[in-house]
C-alpha cells in the first residue's frame, strides 16, 4: 500500500507533507511515496522527532494512489485536506 506522511505545521496549522529529504512542504506531489513497512517506520520515527521539536503536529500516514503523475489521497477527508474545501464558492480570495 502506497503511503505518505502528513501533519499540520505548528506555527500556522497548515497541512504539510513530508519529503524524502525530511522537509515539510505544502505540496502533496512533493511528498515521499512509501510502499515499504520498514521505510514507513523510519519515516514516522523521523517525523515524530519533528513533533518533539515543535515543528509539526498530528503526524499521520495516509494511503494514496498516483494518477497522471500526481499523488491523490484515497480518503475523501485527506483529499479535502490536500486540495481544500469542496464548497462551490466562498469568500476566499481567488475562489470561484
Amino acid at each position: 500500500m502506497l503511503e505518505i506522511l502528513t501533519a499540520n505545521r505548528l506555527s500556522d496549522g497548515d497541512v504539510v507533507y513530508r519529503t524524502a529529504a525530511g522537509d515539510w512542504v505544502d505540496t502533496i506531489d512533493d511528498a515521499e511515496l512509501i510502499d515499504d513497512t520498514d521505510q514507513l517506520t523510519v519515516a514516522v520515527a523521523a517525523a515524530q522527532a519533528d513533533v518533539k521539536a515543535s515543528r509539526v503536529l498530528d503526524v499521520a500516514p495516509i494511503a494514496v494512489e498516483t494518477a497522471e503523475g500526481h499523488i491523490v489521497p484515497k480518503r475523501l477527508r485527506e483529499r479535502i485536506r490536500a486540495f481544500g474545501p469542496t464548497v462551490k464558492s466562498d469568500h476566499r480570495p481567488g475562489a470561484v
Binding site: G13, V15, I80, R81, P85
Partner: peptide
C-alpha cells in the same frame, strides 16, 4: 511546552486545530 500541555490551554481560548488550519 508540548502539544499535550498546550492543547487544553488553547482550547480554553477558543483555538481548535481543524482539517486545514487552526
Amino acid at each position: 511546552i508540548t502539544e499535550d500541555e498546550f492543547r487544553p490551554l488553547r482550547l480554553m481560548n477558543g483555538v481548535y486545530l481543524q482539517l486545514h488550519a487552526y
